[in-house]
């Protein structure tokens, strides 16, 4: 009996010893650690601005005391004044302060400049080639009056009276201010002054050409830049409708001036264009700011100009 007790006791102790070692791996304190690293960056600067200033046209133009120079835009004037809210131009007006587009900034990224006409086709004031005049109604005629050389109106056609006597109830017109326009006449001179490395733009009477020249100039690679290159560039568009250049020009300006004045009341005017040696057709001013003879446009009476400049980052 005794040996069994001791044997069992020894065996139990051995089992307890084995069991105690199995739990060792799970009861030690846990190791932990933490680490942190960081970095900071700032957003690269853009800061490019495309600013416009000035206005090409106005409703009022001051009188120029020199008399030989054109008149500049002012806030109000009794010299040249629009009858409505529309901006106007007239012979003898100018804007040398001009309309300016200025690009500035030094971005930290590469960029390129693109320009378009913003889907606005450039339009300039012009008068088509031909012979023009102004029909003035004659009053106080009677049977004793000589009407040969005067004109009678039928519809939009004025026909010269070759022979015959005055007829009661007939309106007679005399042709004044006969003007010969040898070639399409653009009365306004446009100029662009710009800074920057792009090529110079020549002064011209063709607004469409000068507008396209500005767009081409802005699109040139000369304005594109790498990171940290200053974009500084400016364009100033000015114009001038010269005054009292010469008699022939004055006559054209008068015709255009009369047509422009008729814009506020579209319809048939007393301005005429020679159709044949003995007939003149009345010029009609439309609400689209055009002067037409029949379906032919003989003059454009408004100016339109569009420019859109975009500066984009390049990758």
């Amino acid at each position: 009996m005794k040996k069994n007790v001791f044997l069992k006791l020894a065996s139990a102790l051995l089992v307890l010893c084995l069991a105690s070692t199995c739990a060792i791996g799970t009861t030690f304190a846990k190791y932990t650690t933490a680490d942190k690293a960081s970095d900071t960056a700032r957003v690269a600067k853009w800061g490019i601005t495309v600013a416009t200033s000035g206005s090409l046209f106005g409703t009022d133009y001051a009188s120029n005391s020199a008399g030989t120079d054109a008149d500049s835009i002012v806030a109000s004037s009794t010299n040249v004044n629009s009858s409505n809210v529309w901006n106007i131009v007239a012979p003898g007006t100018k804007n040398e302060a001009g309309f300016q587009v200025k690009l500035s900034g030094t971005p930290e990224v590469a960029y390129n400049v693109t320009a378009t006409n913003n889907d606005v086709a450039a339009e300039d004031i012009w008068l088509a080639e031909g012979t023009y005049g102004v029909m003035v109604e004659q009053t106080g005629l009677n049977a004793a009056s000589n009407v040969v050389g005067l004109y009678t109106l039928s519809g939009s056609t004025y026909t010269k009276v070759a022979a015959g006597a005055w007829a009661a109830g007939t309106t007679y017109y005399a042709l004044h201010d006969i003007t010969e326009v040898d070639a399409k006449y653009f009365p306004i001179q446009w100029a662009v002054v710009h800074s920057g490395s792009a090529p110079a733009i020549a002064t011209t009477s063709d607004l469409n050409a000068i507008a396209q020249a500005m767009i081409d100039n802005l699109n040139t690679d000369a304005l594109d830049g790498l990171a940290n290159e200053d974009i500084a560039a400016s364009y100033k568009l000015t114009w001038k409708w010269a005054f009292e250049l010469d008699a022939a020009t004055n006559a054209k300006d008068t015709i255009l001036g009369n047509l422009i004045a008729a814009v506020s009341t579209p319809g048939q005017t007393n301005i005429v264009k020679m159709a044949t040696a003995t007939t003149y057709t009345a010029v009609t001013v439309t609400s689209d700011m055009e002067a037409k003879v029949g379906d032919d446009v003989v003059a454009n009476l408004q100016i339109a100009f569009g420019l859109k400049v975009t500066v984009d980052q390049v990758d």
């Binding site: 960081s38 970095d39 957003v43 800061g47």
Partner: peptide, 18 residues
């Protein structure tokens, strides 16, 4: 960024335990 400055800081935090 051109007017006031804009910054972005990235922290990488790691934690380990047995």
């Amino acid at each position: 960024a051109a007017q006031k400055g804009v910054t972005l800081t990235l922290d990488i935090n790691t934690f380990a335990e047995e």
